[in-house]
């Protein structure tokens, strides 16, 4: 269910942003958490919080102390992510999954290098102005520029703009 959950997250987040939601929840798993944190690092999300079936209090989104995950409550945990808006437009305008379970797309450092510079490589189109791409590497889910810093390639998850 690894990449499938990522594609679901992509669709969920794009729908939530287009619906102008302030807070939405994702299934709690390691892959989703890694992607959510990568998006947060890239500035697309305002907050990533693990909580129960109900959203955490909005004034405590950043300082919320989640209760420890136990085998008793792990099934009810959700990742609550805050969406950002600027100038009446969502910061996360589009989020498109690239890899899917039936066709994971892997990119080497050289490919990523070209793609990050805006050129087409492998089966990837070059990045446009302000566009980000997230890669699942053995160092975790990284934005393409972070992956290039670390000189790692991997499965290309999604492109965000």
């Amino acid at each position: 269910m690894g990449i499938q959950s990522i594609t679901n997250v992509c669709a969920n987040l794009q729908n939530a942003a287009r619906a102008r939601l302030g807070l939405t929840s994702l299934p709690n798993n390691k892959y989703n958490l890694a992607l959510a944190l990568a998006l947060h690092r890239a500035g697309f999300l305002s907050s990533v919080t693990r909580a129960g079936p109900h959203p955490p209090p909005q004034d405590q989104l950043l300082s919320f102390e989640p209760e420890p995950v136990t085998s008793a409550n792990v099934a009810t945990r959700r990742l609550w992510v805050g969406l950002k808006y600027w100038d009446n437009k969502p910061v996360l305008k589009s989020l498109k999954a690239i890899s899917k379970p039936s066709r994971p797309l892997r990119a080497s450092v050289a490919d990523l290098n070209k793609v990050a510079r805006g050129f087409e490589s492998a089966h990837l189109k070059g990045l446009n102005l302000g566009e980000c791409m997230f890669v699942s590497t053995d160092r975790g889910v990284l934005e393409v520029r972070e992956a290039l810093e670390r000189k790692v390639g991997g499965i290309v998850l999604c492109r965000v703009s």
């Binding site: 890239a42 500035g43 697309f44 950002k84 600027w86 100038d87 437009k89 910061v91 102005l129 302000g130």
Partner: peptide, 8 residues
């Protein structure tokens, strides 16, 4: 605008 929106 993108930079402001993302805080980057």
């Amino acid at each position: 605008e993108i930079a402001i929106g993302r805080g980057k």
